[in-house]
Amino acid sequence: MSTPPDRPGKPGRRPPFGRPGQGGGKGAGKGFGRGPQAGRERRDGSPSGPLGGPDDPVVLYGWHPVFQALSNGTRKLHRLLATENALARLTEELGTLPIDAELVKPFAINALVGADAVHQGLYLEADPLPAPALDEMPEDALLVALDQITDPHNVGAIVRTAAAFGVAGIITTARHSPSATGVLAKSASGGLEHVPLVVVRNLAEALIELGERGFTRVGLDSEADVSLDAYTPKLPTVLVLGAEGKGLRQRTRECCDVIARIPFTGTIRSLNVSNAAAIALYALSPRERA
């Protein structure tokens, strides 16, 4: 059975990986749900942080996020809603489920996540995954650091790509980052179960600590003099990504060993931050070259 593709984000005005007027995009970041358990912004409109409150369950919907969460023994599960077809597919793939499912009609899930959400007949409430400390990251790791990227579509897509390239962790701050729930989890397509979020208070201090541990800190910027394809991949490395529109903050740039650009050859010389992350992670992943 095929599954619908993840929904792309809406176009934005100015990504950090290209000059103004040269394309790029930014996800909508409207939140995802209507129900009482849905992840929400704070009253002041700022994101609630990558883990939410200690008593706040995360909401996962869609085939890949729910399937991967049910397959992850470290997730504490609270409530699973499933349509008849979705439950049959889950049972076929997993056998006995780790939590009893409530059989519902699609409109019951629509009422919780919104009619526009592509839930594919599955809705799961669970505890957040534990956030490891920065000093728990392996000494030979490839990491990603996010400098105030707040759009959940983009962060989720970066998590998905990070899982594909074996990234050991994604460093994010407690503030100016979206919650690991709802839209972000759907965009991550199950990647949250495989790439931990490492939450730090101050990104610059975290980058300094990583530098002291021998990590090469590579920031991405479209105006950089160094081309990314001229950089020889080596571990440990941390890829540092700035928010669309603002790019890397000055203090963050000062904590990088290398500031590099993607060497575009076409007319459009900009990318959505999640697409830029995919290219950069491919370039920075050590591998045998022919």
Rank of each mutant, 00 (worst) to 15 (best):
S2W: 10
S2V: 14
S2L: 12
P4K: 12
G12N: 06
G18E: 04
R19Q: 09
R19S: 12
P20K: 06
G21F: 04
G23P: 04
A28K: 07
K30A: 12
G33W: 03
R34S: 05
G39R: 06
E41A: 13
E41R: 13
G45K: 04
S46T: 15
P50K: 04
L51E: 08
G52T: 09
G53D: 09
P54E: 11
P54H: 06
P57F: 05
P57E: 05
V58H: 14
L60E: 08
G62R: 06
W63C: 07
H64Q: 15
H64L: 11
F67W: 12
Q68M: 08
A69D: 06
A69K: 05
A69H: 05
K76M: 04
K76P: 00
R79W: 09
L81S: 05
L81K: 06
T83D: 04
E84R: 10
A88I: 01
T91Y: 00
E92T: 08
E92V: 00
L94F: 02
L94W: 01
L97W: 01
P98N: 00
D100V: 01
F107L: 00
A108G: 00
A111G: 01
L112K: 02
V113P: 01
A115G: 03
D116G: 03
H119N: 02
H119A: 02
Q120A: 04
Y123F: 10
L124I: 03
P132Y: 01
D135A: 03
M137K: 00
E139W: 00
A141L: 00
L142Q: 03
L143D: 03
A145Q: 01
Q148A: 08
H153M: 00
H153G: 02
N154C: 02
R160K: 09
T161S: 14
T161A: 12
G166F: 02
A168I: 01
A168C: 02
G169P: 04
T172V: 15
A180Q: 06
G182Y: 06
V183Y: 05
L184M: 15
L184Q: 13
A185W: 08
A188Y: 10
G190Q: 10
G190I: 12
G191M: 09
G191R: 07
G191F: 09
G191N: 10
P196H: 12
P196R: 11
V198C: 13
V198I: 15
V198Y: 12
V199N: 11
I208E: 15
E209Q: 15
L210V: 13
L210W: 11
G211Y: 11
E212G: 15
G214Q: 10
T216D: 14
T216I: 14
S222Q: 12
E223F: 12
D225Q: 14
L228M: 13
T232Q: 14
P233H: 09
V240M: 05
G242R: 04
E244F: 07
G245I: 07
K246Y: 11
L248Q: 08
L248I: 10
R249I: 06
T252R: 04
R253W: 07
C256F: 07
R261I: 09
T265E: 12
G266E: 10
T267H: 14
I268N: 13
R269N: 15
S270Y: 09
L271F: 12
V273S: 10
V273Q: 09
S274P: 06
A276R: 08
A277N: 11
A278S: 15
A280Y: 08
A280F: 08
A283R: 14
L284N: 11
P286D: 12
R287W: 10
R289P: 04
A290W: 13
A290F: 13
A290S: 14
